[in-house]
């Protein structure tokens, strides 16, 4: 465990908590893509099937929190606060993300076993899972500040993981090309948003796209 990994994980955890609190406190999931949240629930489920293989208390606890929080979020959006769900703007075709991720996982993986293919699928799936949310923001042309903070924390997490991978490559001589390439793709998808976040939201303005 190095500082980049730890801050990355905490940023990831913070993002999930921000989103849950936002929905719970405002009793609304307006501006949130339910489709992205379903994709994240799929990501954690397929990745953490290795939960019985104990690594550390930290590892087990985080996995359980990520899985539980993702299902709680999906429940809040599609059941409890369903009336506030903005489905007219959540129109990204997720099959265009799920199917290619799965096919790619079948073709490029570390080991052709059920667990490994599902783990690889989760890595590919995660890298593009935010697209329905970013699509929704671009469609409505704006995002609430709290939604922007959520996206910033979530995007920062994989960027910090890239630093962690560079660190591990230099200190432990270890690297995972699948995670690295997918992690870079994932981070690049947030670049446009990062720019808007720094130039607008941090200066107290609302994230609004030019008309």
């Amino acid at each position: 465990m190095n500082i980049f990994r730890l801050v990355g994980d905490l940023s990831h955890l913070l993002a999930i908590i921000i989103l849950l609190l936002k929905i719970w406190k405002t009793r609304s999931c307006a501006g949130i893509s339910g489709k992205s949240q379903i994709l994240f629930a799929i990501v954690y489920t397929s990745r953490y099937l290795d939960l019985p293989n104990f690594v550390s208390m930290y590892n087990t606890l985080m996995k359980i929190v990520f899985i539980a929080a993702s299902y709680a979020t999906v429940y809040l959006i599609y059941m409890k606060f369903k009336a506030t769900y903005d489905h007219n703007h959540d129109t990204f075709r997720v099959e265009f993300l799920v199917l290619p991720s799965f096919v790619l996982a079948l073709l490029i993986n570390h080991d052709f076993t059920v667990l490994e293919v599902l783990w690889t699928f989760s890595i590919y799936m995660e890298s593009v899972a935010i697209l329905p949310q970013l699509f929704m923001v671009s469609k409505t042309g704006e995002a609430e500040s709290i939604t922007s903070h959520y996206l910033f924390a979530l995007g920062s997490y994989r960027a910090l993981y890239i630093l962690n991978w560079i660190y591990r490559y230099t200190t432990e001589d270890h690297y995972d090309l699948i995670a690295i390439v997918a992690g870079i793709v994932q981070t690049v998808l947030y670049c446009d948003f990062f720019y808007l976040y720094i130039t607008k939201v941090l200066k107290g303005k609302k994230l609004q796209l030019p008309a």
């Binding site: 990831h12 590892n59 990520f66 690297y175 090309l177």
Partner: peptide, 10 residues
């Protein structure tokens, strides 16, 4: 260089 999955990562 060792390539492969980092089992401790999330």
């Amino acid at each position: 260089h060792r390539s492969g999955k980092s089992k401790d990562e999330l």
